[in-house]
Design a protein around this nucleic acid. Structure first.
Length: 123
DNA sequence: CGGCTTTGACCGGCGC
DNA sequence: GCGCCGGTCAAAGCCG
């Protein structure tokens, strides 16, 4: 019934729940570029050379498949990645990248990452 | 032991 | 004003 979250983990150690979302409202509207790519692959996480950590999964009301949310686990890389599967074409995956990487991909084991930044403009 | 994954719940914005 | 949708965070558990 309407259990919702009233009987399960309500109080807990609160503090966390109370403090919850105390983020600053001074959030600037940094209109970061939004890149959307259509990938024809059976796998969701295509290793672009970066490390991604899944932080959520929700189903949208126009898709029969759940949308996956990924975030860059780098140091100063707050890039977000959104992956959605098409219902019409299950083998088609829409990968949307939000933000800009501030460091070279960990793929540069051979190449120093202190120079490819400019050349890496595209990827 | 660390790091990543998964689920639930809540919030914020928008529409009507 | 309220409802709906989408999006994010948090904690716990599991695996390597």
């Amino acid at each position: 019934m309407s259990m919702k979250r009233n009987g399960g983990e309500d109080h807990h150690h609160l503090g966390v729940a109370a403090v919850k979302m105390k983020k600053n409202k001074a959030r600037r509207k940094v209109r970061e570029p939004r890149f959307c790519f259509k990938t024809m692959s059976d796998v969701d996480v295509l290793d672009d050379g970066y490390k991604w950590r899944k932080y959520g999964q929700k189903v949208v009301k126009n898709t029969q498949h759940p949308r996956s949310y990924y975030r860059c686990t780098q140091d100063n890389c707050r890039v977000k990645k959104r992956v959605e599967r098409l219902a019409d074409d299950p083998r088609m995956v829409i990968t949307s990248y939000e933000g800009r990487h501030v460091h070279s991909p960990s793929h540069d084991e051979d190449d120093s990452q202190g120079a490819s930044q400019l050349g890496n403009f595209f990827w």
